[in-house]
Structure formats: C-alpha cells, structure tokens
C-alpha cells in the first residue's frame, strides 16, 4: 500500500453511525455468524437423524426430509399458499388498525391527563387479561369470516402500541420540553418535532411485540372458528395425523415471523438511527 492510499483511508467520512466499528468488532461478528451457521447445521442434522435413530414414528415426530417433501409437494404448496394468504391478510389488516388506533390513542392519553385517569383502570384490566379469550365472543358477534380474526389481532396489537406510545411520550426528557417551551414552540411543533421522535424507540419496541402478536391473534381466531387460514389447515392436518404437514405450517409461520421481524428491525434502524 502506498503512502497516498494510506492518507485516503481516513479522508472520506462514511461512518455516520457511532464510530465503533473497529476490526475487532467485525471479527467478533464473523465469529458469531460462524457459530450461528454451525448451530443451524447441527439442528438440521439432528432433526433428520434423531427420529431415525430413536425409531420414532412419522406421525409422532416427522424427519426433516418428510417436512421438506411436504413443502415441495405441488398440491400441498397450493393449499399452504391459499390458506397463508388468508392468515396474512387477517394479521396485516389487524396490525395496521391496531397500530393506528394504539399510537393515536396513546398520544391522546399522554397529552390529556383527565382521559388518562379515566381510561387507565380499563387498560390495566385489559392488559392483565388473556385477550385471545375474547375470540369466541367475536365469533358469536361477527360470524366465521375475516372480521372476528381481525378483531382478535387488533386487540393483541392495540394494547402494546397504546401503552408503549403513551409511556414513550410521558418519558420525554423534561429539559427538552423546557427547551421547546423556551423557544415558544407551538403545540403542533412540540408534538411533531419532540414528542413523536422521543417516543419512536418505545413505539418500535411495541411494534416488535405487536408483529409477533398479530399472528398469534390470527391463528387463534382461526382455531376458534373459521373456514380458511393456516390455523384451519393446521387442525385439518392434525385430524388426519399428517404431522409432517403440521410441521410444514410451523416452518412457514416461523419464516413469516422472521421476515416481519426483520422488516421492523430495518425500519427501526432507519428511523431511530441515533440509538
């Protein structure tokens, strides 16, 4: 490496994020990734070999190859695709409604103390209740279509979003509020330029929980009563002792969960880059 190249190494200011990306960290990251890959390999081999070695019957615990066969079988894949669409639709619609309602009401309750005082006992009561228990009631009220499942999802998303938004706003640094007041900022400016960004980390923490919850809600709703969705398919496979099929659905659910979680993480890193 020539001398000029050495100088150029520090000239461009690329690192905008905290500048702690030394070579040692990269090394640690690589080692961590290596361990993760190794663990996954062990898991794959064990899933294939252990049922074989212990001579477990397929309908009790299928081997990995049987699950993969399910996931590559054309008829099963079509079935999975159709039902997954239903579940995904229920979960995402409920997620969006729950987020909008939770964040909106979270802002309102944080800003308006009388409302907070009035509503808080209900929030605590609902928080400590297993909300999926409402699913049968929703089925009675709204039948077997999308509505009751979406509502269960909304219940499971709304409360974490509400509580996290509210707490995020209420824990806004007091001296920053003083700063905005000293600059004679308007109410709207305080909301948009201070309270919302201050609450973002907490809102995202709620979002990570909510994404997982949305699928819990959709599947549970389908268990209670439905004619389509991965929850319905799961029960059909179970009734037929098609355990490999059940596992195939679990694998798909795991993939969807990981994908949504990654989307939230990427969005968080973009929007809450200062943390």
């Amino acid at each position: 490496m020539s001398a000029t190249e050495k100088i150029e190494v520090r000239a461009p200011q690329v690192d905008r994020a905290p500048a702690q990306r030394g070579p040692s960290k990269v090394g640690a990251g690589l080692r961590g990734r290596g361990l993760a890959v190794g663990a996954v390999m062990v898991f794959i081999v064990a899933w294939e070999m252990v049922p074989r070695l212990l001579d477990v019957q397929s309908f009790i615990f299928p081997r990995l190859s049987e699950v993969i066969a399910k996931l590559t079988d054309a008829t099963t894949v079509t079935l999975l695709y159709q039902h997954a669409q239903v579940t995904l639709y229920e979960a995402l619609v409920g997620l969006v409604i729950g987020i909008v309602a939770g964040v909106g009401l979270g802002f309102a309750l944080a800003e308006w103390e009388p409302a907070r005082a009035a509503v808080y006992p209900f929030i605590v009561a609902f928080q400590s209740m297993p909300k999926v228990a409402l699913a049968p009631l929703f089925i009675i009220w709204f039948g077997f279509g999308y509505t009751p499942k979406v509502l269960v999802v909304v219940m499971l998303v709304f409360f974490p979003m509400l509580v996290n938004t509210m707490n995020g706003i209420l824990s806004t640094d007091k001296s920053r509020l003083d700063l905005f007041r000293s600059m004679s900022a308007s109410k709207w400016q305080i909301w948009s330029r201070l309270l919302l960004p201050s609450a973002l980390p907490s809102i995202f923490a709620g979002l990570e929980v909510s994404v997982v919850n949305s699928f819990i809600g959709a599947i549970t709703g389908e268990f209670v009563g439905a004619d389509a969705g991965l929850g319905v398919l799961l029960q059909q496979f179970k009734n037929n002792y098609d355990t490999a099929g059940v596992f195939a659905i679990l694998v798909i659910l795991a993939f969807i969960g990981v994908a949504l979680n990654q989307i939230v993480r990427i969005a968080r890193r973009r929007l809450v880059f200062w943390q």
Binding site: D173, S175, R176, D178, L179, R181, S182, M183, S184, L194, P197, F273, W274, Q275
Partner: peptide
C-alpha cells in the same frame, strides 16, 4: 411567558439526538 429574544442554556446540552 417565554420570549423569543431570551435564550436558555440548561444543565445538560439538551441537543436533539435525531
């Protein structure tokens, strides 16, 4: 109330991290 011609400095820098 707060005046636009008055500037404050607080105990903490109170910069906005974003």
């Amino acid at each position: 109330g707060p005046r636009r011609t008055t500037a404050f400095m607080f105990q903490q820098p109170t910069l906005l991290p974003w």
